Amino acid sequence: MLRAAALSLMLLAAPALAQTREGFGPGPVLPDVGPIAPVDSELPLPKGAKFKIAFDVSAKATPGALSRQIETAGRTLNMHVAAGVPKENVQIVVVVHGPGAMDLLKPDVYAARNDGKANGSMDAIRKLIGAGVEFYLCGQTAMGQKITKADLLPGVKMSLSAITAHAVYQQRGYTLNPF
């Protein structure tokens, strides 16, 4: 019995361990989304720094795997808070379009469109939304891929288009993440 429990714990921990690269560890906001590395930065963060960052996501993750772009949004939140920026001063929006739309789907809808496979980004998206990160799906992509609002994970919103979402957030002072 004890042996089975130990094996179960190892299997549960394996995905988290597989995602952590050497030198990287859990962040302070989302310990299991977006591992971070300590850096002796020569670019000091200004006192009172505020970050408003928009991520453009168009790539679809491999079914069952976490989207690297979505993970980067978590890493961004974690590393800035770890560097002393108050969590409320790190505002992130993720704008998704094209094939990346698949990663925003509820489990049953995702599985139906991906040969029964699981959405590996779902848990990270849920945690990011819980931490205040906003997610918008391009409405034009949704129409083209026959995705309805009811198909989306809770908390994911629809925008007229990705172009519109980026323009609105740029007017709100957000910078576009270049990665």
Rank of each mutant, 00 (worst) to 15 (best):
V94Y: 03
T72C: 04
L105T: 01
D123M: 03
D123R: 12
D115Q: 15
C138W: 11
L137P: 02
K127Y: 06
G116M: 05
D123F: 00
I147K: 04
T72D: 14
V156E: 02
S159P: 00
I70D: 02
L137G: 03
A112G: 14
K127F: 09
G84N: 12
D151F: 02
R126L: 09
S159C: 01
D115S: 15
N78T: 04
K127N: 10
S159T: 00
G130K: 10
V94D: 01
D115H: 15
I129T: 09
P107A: 14
G144W: 12
T141E: 05
A124E: 03
G120S: 13
Y110E: 02
N78W: 11
V96T: 13
I92K: 03
M158Y: 00
N78L: 13
R68F: 13
R113K: 15
N89E: 06
T72H: 08
V95W: 10
P107W: 05
Q140G: 08
M143H: 13
M79K: 00
G84R: 13
D123T: 07
S159H: 05
A83Q: 11
V85N: 00
A142H: 04
L152G: 08
P99H: 03
A82L: 03
R75H: 14
D108Y: 01
T76V: 07
Q140Y: 07
K157F: 01
T141H: 12
A83Y: 06
K157T: 05
G120M: 12
A83E: 09
L152T: 06
K127Q: 15
P154F: 04
K127H: 10
V90P: 11
K117Y: 01
Q69W: 05
M143K: 13
P154L: 06
G84E: 13
G139E: 11
K87L: 08
K87V: 11
L66A: 11
A101G: 04
T72F: 12
A82T: 02
A118C: 04
G74N: 03
L160N: 02
N114K: 13
H80P: 00
E134L: 12
R126C: 01
G144M: 14
K87R: 15
A112T: 10
L66G: 09
V90S: 11
A142G: 11
P107C: 07
G139W: 05
R113S: 07
N114Q: 15
S121A: 12
I70W: 04
P99A: 12
N119G: 08
A150H: 11
I147D: 07
E71N: 14
V96M: 11
Q91H: 01
L153G: 04
T141Y: 12
A112V: 01
V81Q: 06
M143W: 12
V94H: 06
I147C: 06
V81K: 04
D151H: 00
M122W: 08
K106A: 14
I129V: 15
K146S: 14
A124Y: 02
G98A: 13
Q140P: 09
A73L: 03
H97S: 11
R68N: 13
A101C: 02
V133M: 08
M122Q: 15
R126T: 15
G74L: 04
D115A: 15
Q69L: 11
V90N: 10
V90C: 11
G84Q: 09
A83R: 11
F135A: 03
L137N: 11
N89V: 08
L152Y: 07
M102Q: 09
